[in-house]
């Protein structure tokens, strides 16, 4: 069998940029988060006024979190209103998507049968991205619940910011049993992000090697290969 392949544009520049913003901020968040949870790598030497290790790392954590969250929200907007391709449908675990994702999962283990070429996000990816985004969303809410606990409800802009965050995140306190529970959940979710990101990277590398459609290239230059013609 001979297959004709063609490079097709599958990802817009904004989606690619946002993907890497999310990637780098997640790496930064995991590293700084692990330090905040257990500051064992290095501790400040000298007098307290000469060093600012924990404060700087927390600042990095907060800035990375803001970057991630803003990128996340823009990505969510693009999923619905992109001028290139609105891809929200591919990320929803609907019945047809579910069936096809299950078939893909089977194929990944048996390598039997043909895989349909998808120009947009394939159903298996769509569902895993959906789950990964839910995990990130949980991290967003628990993170802001912890962050706002240190902000006073003063009058003025700070107070408005704090009240907004309280309205948005207070349900996590009820769900996970107060700040201690939220703290533990935030820490545990870190491992869900790490293992999820690992599986995602492995999966994309595997697909690129095994299916030979240049899947990784899609998130770098926006193009991937698609079969245009199959000859027996």
């Amino acid at each position: 069998m001979v297959i004709l392949l063609e490079m097709v544009k599958v990802k817009s520049a904004s989606v690619r940029v946002l993907h890497w913003v999310i990637f780098f901020s997640t790496v930064s968040l995991v590293l700084t988060g692990l330090y905040i949870a257990d500051p064992y790598w290095f501790s400040g030497t000298g007098e307290a006024y000469q060093t600012f290790v924990m404060a700087k790392i927390r600042l990095m954590h907060f800035l990375s979190a803001i970057a991630l969250d803003v990128a996340f929200l823009i990505r969510l907007y693009i999923a619905f209103f992109s001028i290139f391709h609105a891809d929200w449908r591919e990320m929803l675990p609907f019945s047809e998507n579910l069936r096809e994702a299950w078939n893909s999962f089977g194929f990944y283990w048996t390598l039997k049968g043909e895989q349909k070429d998808h120009r947009w996000i394939d159903p298996f990816d769509g569902i895993t991205f959906h789950l990964l985004h839910l995990v990130l969303l949980l991290q967003l809410f628990t993170g802001f619940a912890l962050y706002v606990s240190g902000i006073e409800l003063s009058p003025g802009l700070t107070g408005i910011w704090a009240r907004t965050l309280h309205i948005a995140t207070d349900w996590t306190l009820v769900l996970f049993g107060g700040l201690p529970g939220v703290r533990q959940m935030h820490h545990f979710t870190l491992w869900l992000v790490v293992s999820g990101a690992f599986l995602h990277i492995y999966h994309q590398i595997w697909k690129t090697i095994k299916l030979q459609r240049a899947d990784i290239s899609a998130i770098i230059n926006g193009y991937k290969l698609m079969a245009v013609k199959r000859e027996k």
Binding site: P39, F42, S43, Y49, Q50, F52, V53, M54
Partner: peptide, 9 residues
């Protein structure tokens, strides 16, 4: 708190 911010534990 200054020792927390300084990473001195």
């Amino acid at each position: 708190r200054s020792h927390f911010d300084a990473g001195q534990f």
